[in-house]
Design a binder for these strands. Structure first.
Lengths: 184, 184
DNA sequence: GTCTATATCAAGATAGAC
DNA sequence: GTCTATCTTGATATAGAC
């Protein structure tokens, strides 16, 4: 039986799951290693520190959203109505399919007041989300109105994810998506 | 020079400040003690564990809101317009006056997936907020519409607090309060 | 009520064998 | 690439002197 080679990506995926559920500081290298079937020392072959895993986790998620969600907003071959529907559908799929809510939102509250590097990465991610949403809304609203609405709905989505996890109910979260679609 | 007696309340206030800025797990008993001018061992004279400080912090904040914010909603000597204005004003005062946003929101994301006791306390607090807001809104909306709106605006407020801290700008947060007032 | 001192444990991280 | 072993630090918590 060959020893399984664990990839960087596999470790990131397990780390993200744990960070979302247990929080960043409450997740240890040993926890991450165990989830990968390794012992903690072995993780350091792939990442030089826990903070690196944290930053790479943010990047990993950002890349997923760029590729599978935000890109929809800029696909000018589709109508804006179709784009906003698809956009909301993809966001919902992501946040309804796993436990613990939005890692970026969680980390924004857990450690962005302390760690400037994390804060910058999280800000970039949220701005990309707002920009994508605003790009669709610009077809119907003036530029600065579109921007305000986009930020408002990102806020609302984050708040709704928080309460969805707190109440173990997706009902109110789902209403947010419907409201976003109705904007167009 | 007499040795200063540190009260439970003083410790809670310092702990709350630190939890909001540094996060719960990233705040140590030594950090809390230092903020109070004590050394860590001395804290155990007042609280039997860090978790007790956490739970008591939530209670402390909840009591503050019950007394100074939620009570406004139920003051039937004022018009509903006056009540909603005062309510929003008090909420704004609280969240604009200190760094780190809303401890209950932060802890909801940092540790409520893991710790049932914390989760229950946080849920109770958010429900009280919703109930108070819904009570005012009932004057103009049907009961279940008022409840939906209340939850939506609590979500929106929490999301806006998150982004306010992330972007170091209160502009969008303040718009939320105006929207709430316009509901009546 | 606060201090010094210490017990105990778990964290992040590194070195070197296999 | 993973393991064992270990270093170092810092965490929660306790005991007992002042």
């Amino acid at each position: 039986m060959a020893i399984k080679k664990t990839s960087r990506e596999e470790i990131l995926q397990e780390a993200i799951k744990l960070f979302k559920i247990r929080g960043y500081y409450n997740t240890s290298m040993a926890n991450i290693a165990e989830a990968c079937g390794l012992i903690k020392g072995s993780i350091y072959h792939h990442f030089k520190s826990k903070d690196e895993i944290g930053i790479e986790s943010l990047k990993y998620i950002h890349e997923y959203f760029d590729k599978h969600v935000y890109s929809i907003a800029y696909d000018d071959t589709l109508s804006s109505k179709k784009r906003i529907k698809l956009f909301v559908q993809k966001v919902d799929e992501y946040f309804l399919s796993s436990k613990g809510g939005c890692l970026l939102g969680n980390l924004a509250l857990e450690l962005s007041s302390e760690n400037e590097e994390f804060k910058k990465a999280i800000r970039t991610y949220f701005l990309a989300w707002e920009d994508a949403l605003a790009y669709i809304l610009k077809e119907k609203y003036k530029e600065d109105e579109a921007k305000k609405l986009a930020r408002e709905y990102v806020s609302l989505t984050q708040g709704a994810i928080m309460l969805m996890n707190l109440y173990d109910s997706s009902e109110d979260y789902l209403r947010v998506g419907k409201k976003i679609i109705d904007l167009i």
